[in-house]
């Protein structure tokens, strides 16, 4: 093998290596990357929106700081997903007992046109007493969803009615408002409860 052949081989190997790297980049980070899965919500300290809770108080992301929080989106005209999420959460809270006394649990409506403050107050009253119901204007609702990286969409149904598609995950935040994970829709209690307990024990460690 003379020197020229060696150079040719070397160039070929380098070329293959470069191509491999390029293909890797293309698939992982480049245009060939798979559709991004839901982005992480912002920390509560970086969100900006204003809503009204079930008692008429003005609330926003800053209201949640200082205690661990659980927040999720839905609407009260939802017959399946939302009552299931609210009753799942009520069950988790029952399991956690007194440990959740200081936890914020917030149900945010994506359908403020129908979910007035009074409608939210009545609806949440049927579930665990820790669950709050927040509603805002259409634009504040959009700002809240953007902060949580949640999405929702009005879908017209038969008979001039409509329903809402929406992110059904439950978002967890620690006392400082840092995002601490999600509980997926209808996730079983054996997985959900330890996730919630984790942010609660972290809160205890911080205060002691």
């Amino acid at each position: 093998m003379n020197r020229r052949t060696l150079l040719t081989y070397g160039a070929a190997i380098a070329g293959v290596a470069a191509l491999t790297l390029f293909i890797g980049w293309w698939r992982v980070d480049g245009p060939g990357a798979p559709e991004p899965v839901a982005q992480r919500p912002l920390p509560l300290t970086q969100m900006e929106f204003q809503m009204t809770d079930q008692d008429g108080a003005t609330v926003g992301p800053e209201t949640l700081l200082g205690n661990p929080s659980m927040a999720f989106f839905g609407f009260t005209y939802c017959p399946d997903v939302c009552p299931t999420t609210l009753s799942d959460i009520s069950g988790w809270l029952d399991d956690l007992g007194d440990d959740v006394a200081d936890m914020n649990v917030v149900f945010i409506t994506v359908d403020p046109e129908r979910d007035t403050e009074a409608a939210m107050a009545e609806y949440v009253s049927y579930f665990h007493p820790a669950i709050q119901g927040w509603s805002g204007t259409l634009s504040e609702t959009a700002r809240a969803a953007a902060g949580f990286r949640a999405s929702y969409e009005k879908v017209v149904t038969e008979g001039d009615d409509y329903t809402m598609n929406h992110t059904a995950s439950v978002f967890l935040f620690d006392v400082e408002g840092q995002f601490a994970g999600t509980v997926d829709y209808h996730e079983s209690r054996e997985f959900a409860v330890p996730k919630i307990r984790r942010i609660l024990t972290r809160a205890e460690e911080d205060t002691s």
Binding site: V81, N165, H166, Y185
Partner: peptide
Amino acid sequence: TKTDANGVSSMAPAGEIMIPPGESVSLEPG
């Protein structure tokens, strides 16, 4: 009701539901 990879739930008419012999179909939350 279907929930996609991004965690977004939606609901649509399911059409006809076929139950094979000896099997069950559950109508359940989610």
